[in-house]
């Protein structure tokens, strides 16, 4: 039994040392800080899978609005049906199937559009409308207060544009903004 014990001790110690080395080698790298999942809005093709592929009942992907690239249009193609009856907030004119966008008058002729995130399902319908005709100020982002931070994001797995990747936890968003726009 002595020989067996010696053997076991040796294997155990070797494994411990190996694991320690593994840990040290990883932690030594600067990349050892936390990661979260995020969408690159410039890669996003508004395919609609964000609404269905999230493990949550209601997706953690929400539409967010970059006000500084918004045109504040009276006729917003992200807000109104392609051929609205009239430019008012009546439900039949609204593009959003869940009514998650608010339209408020600022001053003639500008209107501000804000997202009511609890209602947003992340289907990207408005994003498509805004990006197709307008400035693309509406875009999708993963909301980290909703996201359960899966080890592997199931939307990322399905994303046809490969637009979802891990980002450092201290820069958890990739908003569209003035600085990076052409």
């Amino acid at each position: 039994m002595k020989r067996r014990d010696f053997f076991l001790n040796a294997v155990r110690s070797a494994t411990m040392v190996g694991l320690g080395g593994l840990f040290a080698s990883f932690v030594h790298k600067a990349k050892a800080d936390g990661k979260v999942w995020q969408i690159d809005p410039w890669k996003c093709t508004q395919c609609g899978l964000c609404a269905t592929e999230c493990v949550l009942e209601q997706s953690a992907v929400k539409c967010v609005h970059s006000f500084d690239i918004c045109g504040y249009c009276r006729l917003c193609t992200g807000y109104f049906e392609p051929q609205p009856n009239s430019l008012n907030t009546a439900a039949e004119n609204q593009l959003c199937p869940t009514g998650a966008i608010f339209r408020t008058f600022v001053e003639d002729p500008y209107y501000e559009y804000t997202i009511n995130e609890p209602l947003c399902v992340g289907c990207a319908k408005c994003v498509k409308g805004c990006t197709m005709f307008g400035n693309g100020s509406l875009h999708l982002q993963i909301r980290h207060n909703v996201c359960v931070h899966c080890n592997e994001c199931s939307i990322a797995r399905a994303c046809p544009a490969d637009a979802i990747h891990r980002v450092p936890v201290d820069q958890p968003y990739k908003f569209k903004s003035r600085g990076e726009q052409v």
């Binding site: 970059s66 006000f67 500084d68 995130e117 909301r143 980290h144 207060n145 996201c147 958890p172 908003f175």
Partner: peptide, 11 residues
């Protein structure tokens, strides 16, 4: 009117 900023709830 001032442009609203981003809401960025953190992980």
């Amino acid at each position: 009117h001032k442009l609203p900023g981003f809401l960025a709830p953190l992980p």
